[in-house]
Design a protein around this nucleic acid. Sequence first.
DNA 1: TCCCTATACCTCGAGCATCTAGGTATCGTA
DNA 2: TACGATACCTAGATGCTCGAGGTATAGGGA
Lengths: 113, 113
Amino acid sequence: MAPANFMTGVAELMVLRLVKDREMYGYEIVAAIREETGAVVRAGEGVIYPVLHGLEKDGALAASRKTVNGRSRIYYRLTPKGLRRLDGLAQDWTALAGAVDTVLKGRRHAPAL
Amino acid sequence: MAPANFMTGVAELMVLRLVKDREMYGYEIVAAIREETGAVVRAGEGVIYPVLHGLEKDGALAASRKTVNGRSRIYYRLTPKGLRRLDGLAQDWTALAGAVDTVLKGRRHAPAL
DNA sequence: TCCCTATACCTCGAGCATCTAGGTATCGTA
DNA sequence: TACGATACCTAGATGCTCGAGGTATAGGGA
């Protein structure tokens, strides 16, 4: 049996969070996720590019092409809609993480705040 | 765009964790997940039964049919193999949760190139 | 008795996100 | 000029979830 992923939705959440701080381009995002998570999350280009396109199509990201050092890059920045989406996903994630933690630790009677 | 799931693999992890404490049957597990997570995780029967069958086929769970109060139930218990799988998944989950948290909180922010 | 709900099992098909594995092109360096 | 790094992209297969159904029994109420 293959190792379960747990990855669903995480890629999108991370993309939104990363571009919140500053404009970033796809290749850079892939590297940032690999480095900042200590390679725990390995979301390759095959994952990130479709996510970026989907988010842009949905109006959560805005893209602008720029040439830097002779290299053509597509920078993405967060739109207000994207910010709302990020907030929602972050909340969902926090709730899930708390729920999983509760079950993992087996506290049956502790009120969850 | 629909709300992202984040659910992949979580159902399996929770099933393994729940039956670690005591034998449980499918219908009971569905209710337990709903209640213990405050309905944050809504893994219905359509999710849990296939997971149970898969884990049993894989040797992670052992099943035994019992009749209680005139009702036929299939109880599952954790095997040594299932325990190893639980430990592995729990570790994976913890690592992922930590990684996501790191990115969400935006620590370690390197200067732009 | 009949019917409805709760219990308890199960499966199918649609949908969607991931993952692998490719492809293209440019730049700097050896 | 050959190569690796940069930077973009897509197609197909896989795998998991999810909803909607189906079967059957027990118990209670009208």
